[in-house]
Design a protein around this nucleic acid. Structure first.
Lengths: 193, 193, 193, 193
DNA sequence: TGTTAAGCGAGACGGTACGTCGCGTCTTAAT
DNA sequence: ATTAAGACGCGACGTACCGTCTCGCTTAACA
């Protein structure tokens, strides 16, 4: 398909992504995208309701899910997952995009829906890792997958987004050790509380 | 002290907080603050370098650290900490402020410093909780406090900021169970990696 | 043509002229013109580079050249010209506009060009009067037209702008008598100096 | 007298004159004068009611009257007067100051009074020149001195302020020839008109 | 010789205008 | 019917200057 619309939208998306990644979110504006893409502002607004929507579209386009490792063990799956992750050097850009997305989502319900879909897509590999561990008996099959994802991803999110830190291999190992220990420990029925 | 400056700054801060909490961050602007506070725009700029700075000032003013519980055990300390936290209903506002802060910090170095101080202030109670647990022998005294904080706070941050969820008492208990299990498990020297 | 631009520019010019004539130049500002005209400030700046340019545009729009009398004689031509002129009661306003224009021109090169064009337009009738007198033999055909204009208009400019005076018919007659006498006298070759 | 007030006023005047002459009227402001003079803004306002007053004070301080030549003849007196004048290269600055003064006077009655005094002071030499010519019989003793001054100074004012031109010696001679011719011609009783 | 009041510096205040940028809407003409 | 081109109203941005207003500190003159 090469309709005029599609060509225009493609140009818009390219220009938007370039602006966002090269010059940061403060350089991102409909006017700037129009200038850079050569597409008229009117046309942009025909395809994106407002600036936030284009921003979110662009942000989410740059957040690509990880592949799902399958090494046969929880600990090594997680290592594989986060090592790939940790090898990325565009952590700063990623943080910018993620923060922008969270900020938009928190202030705008429709963006929040987009975020929901993105989170689903993004956490699917992790859910699969946990499900495999559960089927292997490493993890309590009764453990809610959402909770598991939070237990695993949460510490990294905190370090990444709040502390803006990176992990040394030692730190990464320690973190994973404790996360895996927490996950694999069978826990007393919490209904006692 | 009741100098003219201090009166003006107080008025500015009040108006800024009102605007931010009542009408959301999109209603926040220097002009709006000037109008609402009755303080001249010039005066605002005399005390705050730019709009972002006033925004960050306002956001951080509304993020108040938790008290540090001391119940004699890690698990019960955490319960106390998060139950207080969880009982709050202004989670949405808190999320907005936090996301705004993270978003600003990620795009502006000077804001990032402010965030750093805030994080320090905010995580101090949690560090104390962990230190007490270490002195009691519940937690490995060799565990880095930053990592510990990430292991504890991370899952909640993920749930809170990314998933925008609240926890049922059961979920909360399960989460704490696994977190505590992870923390209290002595872990083999990670130098093996 | 009734394009949007032209409508806007017309509104701007009207409001600017009203402000300038009614409340004086100190009441003239882009913001005030925007308020009164109902045209957005942005739009004003789209058509006028800055406040001074709009001011000069407005000042010059209100300076309209005189018609050229042709009575058959220099003296009576001048009488006709200045009687029309002298009958005007908006001398004060005219002085304001003229002084504003001179002041702007003297401090800004681009305004000076505008002034040059205005002066050309404004002195054309007088040049014609002199040329006719030269063709009739009343005035030395070798006399530079610029000098002639200065000789004629200069005294009135001085009285009008510096002295802020008006002329009684007697005074006017005396002035014209001497001016005409000066012009019609054949003068020795000035190369003697 | 070297009271504190006088020292302050002197500093203010110096700074004001420097600013006005060096950087032009657009650089002239109370704040700038305060900065440059080291005198507090408060003190400036204690001695000058407002910015315009200080501006006019400064402008008039830089306009110094010419000496009165006395060569024994009208034509040579005028030559002497205007040659001195014409030799000055600060014509541009003079034009700026004069235009500023006229502009202020035309828009503010109290400034207009100041202008009146300045004009009187400035035209006194010319009045004296004419009076001498009248006593010599060169000029009609019945000619009003104000009119005479306008006839003489007017053409130069026009050329100077409106045309921003300078005169070649030839042009100057021609101008003076015609002016003198106009002045020395006995004119029929103008009551005929 | 002290005391007191005027004048001073320092600088914040409310206010208005400046000129710029981005938003989202609208109109016109070309494709 | 869709697009390009670009003006429009709106409103925030951050800056400069206006003239006013405390404040203490310093002088000078008076008691």
């Amino acid at each position: 398909m090469n309709t005029r619309s599609e060509i225009a939208v493609t140009k818009i998306r390219h220009a938007a992504a370039e602006l966002l990644l090269a010059d940061g979110p403060s350089a991102f504006s409909i006017d700037a995208v129009a200038r850079r893409s050569g597409v008229a502002k009117t046309t942009i607004y025909r395809h994106f309701d407002n600036a936030r929507e284009l921003l979110v579209d662009t942000l989410s386009a740059t957040l690509r899910p990880q592949p799902t490792p399958n090494t046969g063990g929880l600990r090594s799956d997680l290592e594989a997952f986060f090592q790939t992750e940790a090898s990325t050097r565009e952590l700063d850009e990623l943080a910018q995009r993620l923060a922008g997305l969270l900020y938009s989502a928190v202030n705008d319900p429709s963006t929040n829906e987009v975020l929901g879909e993105l989170v689903t897509a993004y956490t699917t590999p992790m859910r699969t890792i946990v499900e495999l561990a559960q089927s292997r008996g490493e993890v309590d099959p009764g453990l809610d997958l959402d909770l598991a994802v939070e237990l695993i991803q949460g510490p990294f999110l905190f370090g990444f987004l709040v502390r803006r830190r990176t992990y040394s291999p030692d730190d990464l190992a320690t973190l994973l050790d404790h996360i895996v220990a927490g996950l694999t420990t069978r826990v007393a029925a919490s209904a006692m509380d």
